[in-house]
């Protein structure tokens, strides 16, 4: 009985961590799908979301919902600015150059955040109190319910946007074939800007709703970004359920691994899954095979 209760708790806390990874992974997938860039700065938007909310809410004393909206707006503006200044001028650069630029961007954003808000860790208040909900003997925080809810809303919105709106379809077209998209009259450059806007807003949302649980500081973005990255790759870089499943798998296996095997190697688990998946099914668990382009 005790073991079952333990397993239930591992799974539940794994799922809640996994939802965080999924949310961050979705941001990676969106940019990758419309630009084929892996945006190493994605984790920094997660950090910005949390830190900006903290700044507006705690430092300026604004009402929390207003602080959240302002934080998302500000982080999105940073994302758009980054795309305009650093990504867009390099039209046809090699992917490796773009990777380095996003790495540079992440260092820069982190550095500015450090100068603005210092190096301390801060806690945001929970959105709906901090009394845990007990589910069959396993505890879960109301904040986790927020995370599940927001993830669900974002996937649905994504699905609607990418499959049922003109802009969304255009963005997907860009990822399949940029030249062909241009030929049929899609403004490719605008679509790339769009994808940066969407994914930085999403990163910020993720950062905001997880900050009450995980706390936030200028350097939280790196590891969260990498884990989100794993989720996206395992999910086959899909902008929907694939990445979510990837995130949840990583989260649950990490938690089970920490509980049943060794907590020291917990962080390695995400990357071992990543390697295994890459070697067996490089297109991800749920991705469709892609023909090699010559």
């Amino acid at each position: 009985m005790e073991l079952i209760e333990q397993l239930l708790q591992y799974t539940l806390s794994g799922l809640s961590t996994g939802a965080i990874y999924a949310l961050i992974g979705l941001g990676f997938a969106i940019i990758y799908n419309s630009t084929s860039i892996i945006n190493f700065a994605q984790g920094e938007f997660v950090m910005l979301g949390g830190m900006l909310t903290l700044f507006f809410h705690v430092t300026l004393g604004l009402y929390l919902p207003l602080a959240v909206v302002l934080a998302i707006a500000a982080a999105t503006a940073v994302g758009a600015l980054f795309e305009r200044l650093a990504i867009s001028p390099l039209k046809d650069a090699e992917p490796i150059i773009l990777v380095i630029i996003t790495i540079g961007g992440s260092i820069l954003i982190r550095g500015v955040a450090m100068l603005l808000w210092g190096k301390d860790t801060h806690a945001l208040p929970m959105f709906s109190g901090d009394d845990p909900i007990i589910l069959l003997g396993a505890a879960i925080m109301p904040q986790n319910i927020w995370i599940f809810g927001v993830t669900l809303i974002i996937i649905t919105a994504n699905r609607l946007f990418f499959h049922h709106s003109v802009s969304g379809k255009a963005m997907r077209a860009c990822s399949f074939n940029r030249i062909a998209s241009r030929l049929v009259g899609i403004d490719v450059k605008r679509m790339i800007l769009f994808s940066f806007i969407i994914s930085s807003a999403m990163g910020a949302v993720a950062g905001i709703i997880i900050a009450p649980l995980t706390m936030t500081s200028y350097d939280v973005g790196v590891m969260l970004g990498l884990k989100g990255f794993c989720a996206a790759i395992i999910g086959g870089m899909s902008t929907g359920m694939g990445t979510v499943a990837g995130g949840l798998i990583v989260g649950v296996l990490e938690s089970l691994g920490a509980g049943l095997i060794s907590s020291g190697y917990k962080d390695a688990i995400a990357f071992i899954i990543l390697l295994v998946i890459l070697l067996i099914r490089p297109q991800g668990l749920f991705g469709k095979g892609e023909a090699e382009r010559v």
């Binding site: 150059i97 630029i101 790495i103 260092i107 820069l108």
Partner: peptide, 19 residues
């Protein structure tokens, strides 16, 4: 304390203008 900012900027600027 500013070196991390300078480092990031140099990295971006150099890759942008000297690919």
């Amino acid at each position: 304390d500013y070196d991390i900012v300078v480092y990031g900027t140099v990295l971006i600027v150099m890759t942008m203008f000297m690919p």
